[in-house]
Design a protein around this nucleic acid. Sequence first.
RNA 1: GCCAAAGUGGCGGAACUGGUAGACGCGCUGGACUCAAAAUCCAGUGGGUGCAAACUCGUGUGGGUUCGAGUCCCACCUUUGGUACCA
Length: 806
Amino acid sequence: MRYDFSATEKKWQARWAEQNTFATGTDQNKPKYYVLDMFPYPSGSGLHVGHLEGYTATDIITRYKRCRGFNVLHPMGWDAFGLPAEQFAIKTGTHPRLTTEINISSFRDTLKSMGFSYDWSREINTTDPGYFKWTQWIFLKLHEMGLAYMSEIDVNWCEELKVVLANEEVDEKLADGYTVVRKPLRQWVLKITAYAERLLEDLDGLDWPENVKQMQRNWIGRSEGVEIDFELRCHRTNLRVYTTRPDTLFGATYLVISPEHPMAEKLATAQQLTAVKAYIEQAKLKTELERTGLQKDKTGVFTGSYAINPATGEALPVWISDFVLTSYGTGAIMSVPAHDSRDWEFAKKFGLPIREVVKSPHDVQEAVFEAKESVSVNSSNDEISIDGLPFKAAFDRMATWLESKGKGKRTVNYRLRDWIFSRQRYWGEPIPIKHYEDGTMRHETNLPLTLPEVEAYHPTSTGESPLANIEEWLIGSDEHGRYRRETNTMPQWAGSCWYYLRFIDPANAEKLIDPSRERYWMNVDLYIGGAEHAVLHLLYSRFWHKVLYDLGVVSTKEPFQRLFNQGMILGEDNEKMSKSRGNVIPADLVLSTYGADAVRLYEMFLGPLEQVKPWNTNGIEGISRFLSKVWRLVYAENETSLRITEEKPGHAVLKRMHKAIRKVSEDTELLKFNTAISEMMVLVNELHKAGCYSREAVETVLLLLSPFAPHITEELWQTLGHEQSISGAAWPLFDPSMAKDDVVTIAVQVNGKLRGTYDAPADCPKEQLLEEAKKLESVVKFLEGQSIVKEIVVPGKLVNFAVKPL
RNA sequence: GCCAAAGUGGCGGAACUGGUAGACGCGCUGGACUCAAAAUCCAGUGGGUGCAAACUCGUGUGGGUUCGAGUCCCACCUUUGGUACCA
């Protein structure tokens, strides 16, 4: 009897659904384990083998943990608001809801045919009013807490298309010949910067890949520096700059402010005014990309004004340049061209003086010297000297001096910016805010505030979302007067910021989440997803979670205790899978050819989970062979009768078996599925070789394999007479004494080169190992005529003789 | 440029805290079964020299530490991911 994967997989998937096999356990006395996938955006192109990698990994862990006695929460849902469905609607008039529904049902089918053991009764969808009611609720809380505010923000505005573009879209539109300008629009902004310090600090306690933590640290970009006031010569105000190198103050030879700096125009002298105005105007036309992107050539204009260097008393010219960012620090810098490459470049271009104040190994007129591992020079006046001091000491003395003179203040700065939270789109959560005629704003308390039906999905000519065209929805009145609704919607990130909480209590109509369930299930014990979310999604989620923590909605400071990034699966040509390359391997295709168990095993066998690796359809044949070998542990070839025996396995087989239990258990815990599978292959090969079809051994194989290949093992488990699902069976335990070798092969080396091996008992004492080694024929000839300088014995491993010619 | 990770057979990859490099799988070669094929099974499979026993080289490159290095240290090269004037 041959294994028919197609019929078997269908049979068990139907039975699992019918019997609710994977319903989440509710007995709170049992230990819990929460395994979460990054839920997908249900796109129209369906799932390919790359998408299934992470889901397979979490499913293996889920099934494994269940067998180890945990209540496991393993849910799935849909991040279903988003641009593609809306673009499709603009083109075809199809309602995004319909597109989304169709895509979801195709995604769900594929996931089900992989045999994933999700608790489908907890499925959530971010576009479901019952869900986004709470997304809106969180937004209102953010607003109450002063963490959501409106501000004029520059957006990428395309004149011809009358549309706001996302940063990612700008390049492509420019290439098509459109013009994109920066235009200020009133936007909702979330004050994530208020949580910068906590977001940074709490990273330390997380079991996350080091590179992801590092990326978040870089993104938050904490820096310690000093704000220094420079007196302006012909103005009563000061010019405040931010620097992380106060130790180089003596080397500051000019100042630069950004074109948007409030003082920019005021500082222009009569003579310079025309040039300054022209420069500011020109900067406005440039997009963010043009200003910060590839073009590195420095531009700038002199204001005509001067400021006094508090350390040297010198008058420094004040320049305007767009390389200085308005939104970082004070929007103004002191330039120390000798020790900062940007300042150096600028100074060279405009002929400004360069003065060495940190001892440099070369002439700073020729090249910049930026390293901090040196000491200050030329840095003293009547009141202070930092000459000879290394960076840290020089920094401190200078900062203290400036503070004592009231000219400066130590400051911490973050690179992190507040989060622009509004989109001028239809297919997103409406922001539940009412704007009244008197200019006040109130919350829409009747949540959820749902989307109205619209005729057309195009943004309006003013750049507002299509919602601005729907009078009935837009305008209303209540006891506070006439109001106009907020027409911006939330970005796609919003729904994914807190979905992991809703899975715990998906149907709660009264609360976002029930506190006792929250306390039982949080945190997420294992969160698996792609590295592309290393910063944004994971940072935004952590931010919302901390806000909910402050609100008392959740009991943990962090949402995801352990994070794991699966590596991408490349196409067979070693390139990223993409439609345009034509190298996409669709999930449904391999599923129908090889079956779910083979696909699951192969995806995991390909290599380490975290690694990027190419798909190779040929390789899956090996897995199919392995599965039929497993099948033949129970059914002999061409036989319908069982070959299983009730005898105890032989000693050698038993040892092999216990070793496999240990290895597979350890590797599964560590998500090292490739080596776990390899170990199972070794065991199965061994059983066939030994002709051992003992029930004890075969059932062990089935149990070990069941999280990986649930269908075939379920079928054979039933064949062997079990009435309960193998998914509920207890994980096998190993006997440590059985999992140990009693005979080991000892390697014998002479001068580190392998010259022979022999078998010895595992606990053989050193002396005896040496004796035996010296007797080996293949070793003796290398010892002849030599004097042994040193004898190294590693029990259970090897013997090495260091020799010298006599 | 900066930050992070990684370079091992024809290919994917394995190798615990330094201890027999190449597990497992793909592919390939030969054989068995068959009228034949598929499937399956058995044997072999890093390079070089050799009839053989055996010897020798070999984990990106060059040095170093060590009885012993894929693994540790230094320098360099390449690839991938992140970031991009953050003062």
